[in-house]
Nucleic acid binder design. Structure first.
Length: 442
RNA sequence: CGGGGCGUAGCGCAGCCUGGUAGCGCAUCUGUUUUGGGAACAGAGGGUCGCAAGUUCGAAUCUUGCCGCCCCGACCA
């Protein structure tokens, strides 16, 4: 993409109502625009990141054996009345009436709807287990939306639902998602720690939150330090036994504020105790027959007797992750994107458009990176060099290649690693090779 | 939902107390010069001061109501 043709509305000054880094940078980098409290337009740069995160989440779900579908945003109140959640959910649910005065709602979650789908089509234990998911916009009318997309009212969530014949099987599904989440967050370039969590109004008794540690986190969390650096499972057989992966993590102390047990925490060696602020980016639940029982979602077992399906649900806040990743990865000059989710793979800066050699070399680098699928952004705008560098720092692409007359006299361009700040001079071809190599395993 | 604050040009703000022709910086447009880390000069455009009612000869400014937004807390898959 050429900057001169792109739509990148940057803000030079920090909007006064943004108090956390990710919100400030998302506004300044032209990623989002607020439409009303907790509701945002995703501008091209932000949309690109959102879609990249979504795709990684999708790929890891598919690897774990979950099957993608898509349910609507607008739901009928009927299903919600079956589970008695229509009244229980309260004012957080946006209620709507259609022209016939029918009660509708903008879905805050989809347990009721998926259970209805399940009971309509699944009859036999032979069809189990099943894990179904979708990635869809949700709406929760938060009392106080804040922190930009991290606590919006409208947000994009991946929600998976598992159906099993027995609790024992359901725990296997739970472990699949637990494992998939570890891999998902690792691919996104963040360290998310699974923590014992409160099940909240969703109910149930087995639940973990996946939490990124960051100063700006909304809640306090407590865990064993080793959990933070523990390597992801990587390639595993999702049909095999995953309990060791679960056990390796849950045997170490980790809990959110509500579940915190100070006595247990005190048993951790002092140098391994970690209390910090955290951002919840995923939450998984096992809740048994909470919805399947009232909605009569049953299958025939091998004895020909109806058995209520045992369910779990598994959410990842896709739009929240855009903010969460920035909270975990930025500096005083702007965003520092992990390679896996960066909106563009590298920025090529033509420091002097109109200067023939600068034009030629920057175009050549740009085309070679395009051909290698690095998806570069070429800054071909006229303007001061300082603006170019600071703009590139702000939007946080992992590599910056500066092409200008001064370097070209020596036959070199400057490559800057955004994360380390390290700058090196090298030939244009070396720069291209370096960037391409950096993306081969991403 | 309790407490607090804000709404004036695209963005950031001043003016309001003490009513009298709406300002500053950045951005934008034109021109000239400049160019290796947020350039300089000259010129230009852009606002029914959130909305409504009231007080007044006169309201951005005072009063009342409404709307919107933000912060702290409580709440929160």
């Amino acid at each position: 993409m050429r900057l001169s043709r792109y739509f990148l509305p940057l803000l030079k000054e920090t909007p006064s109502d943004a108090t956390v880094a990710s919100h400030r940078y998302m506004l300044r980098a032209g990623m989002i625009r607020q439409n009303s409290a907790g509701i945002y337009t995703w501008l091209p740069l932000g949309h690109k990141v959102l879609k990249k995160i979504e795709q990684i989440v999708r790929e890891e779900q598919n690897k774990a054996g979950a099957i993608e579908m898509l349910m609507p945003t607008i739901q009928s109140a009927e299903l919600w009345k079956e589970t008695a959640r229509y009244d229980a959910y309260g004012p957080e649910m946006l209620r709507i009436t259609d022209r016939h005065d029918r009660e509708m709602l903008y879905g805050p979650t989809n347990e009721d709807m998926i259970t209805d789908v399940f009971r309509s089509f699944v009859r036999s234990y032979k069809d189990l287990p099943k894990m179904l998911y979708h990635i869809q916009w949700k709406f929760r009318d938060e009392r106080r939306p804040r922190f930009g997309v991290m606590r919006g009212r409208e947000f994009l969530m991946k929600d998976t639902y598992s159906f099993d014949l027995t609790e024992e099987d359901a725990v296997k599904s739970y472990n699949k998602m637990f494992t998939a989440y570890l891999n998902t967050f690792a691919r996104l370039g963040i360290k998310a720690v699974p923590m014992k969590a409160d099940t909240g109004p969703i109910g149930g008794d087995l639940s973990h939150e996946f939490v990124i540690l960051a100063e700006s986190g909304e809640s306090e969390v407590f865990c064993h330090r080793d959990l933070v650096e523990m390597a992801p499972p990587g390639d595993v057989d999702f049909d095999g036994d995953l309990s060791h992966i679960f056990d390796a993590r849950t045997s170490l102390y980790a809990a959110t504020e509500e579940m915190h047990d100070a006595d247990e925490f005190a048993k951790i060696p002092t140098d391994k105790q970690l209390s910090a602020r955290g951002i919840e980016v995923g939450h998984i639940f096992y809740f048994g027959d909470k919805y399947s029982a009232p909605m009569k979602a049953t299958v025939m077992d091998s004895d020909g007797k109806p058995q209520t399906a045992m369910m779990g649900s598994y959410g990842i806040g896709v739009s929240r992750l855009v903010g969460g990743i920035i909270e975990a990865s930025h500096d005083e000059n702007g965003i520092v994107w992990p390679k896996s989710v960066t909106p563009f793979g590298a920025g090529v800066m033509n420091l002097k458009p109109g200067h023939e050699e600068s034009d030629d070399v920057s175009e050549d680098i740009y085309h070679k990176l395009v051909a290698a699928d690095v998806d570069p952004l070429l800054d071909d705008e006229k303007g001061s060099i300082g603006v170019k560098f600071s703009r590139m720092d702000l939007i946080g692409l992992p590599f910056q290649i500066a092409v200008g007359p001064r370097g070209l006299k020596e036959g070199s361009v400057e490559v800057k690693d955004r994360a380390t700040g390290e700058k090196q001079n090298m030939t244009p071809d070396e720069a291209v090779a370096l960037v391409i190599a950096a993306y081969t395993d991403v």
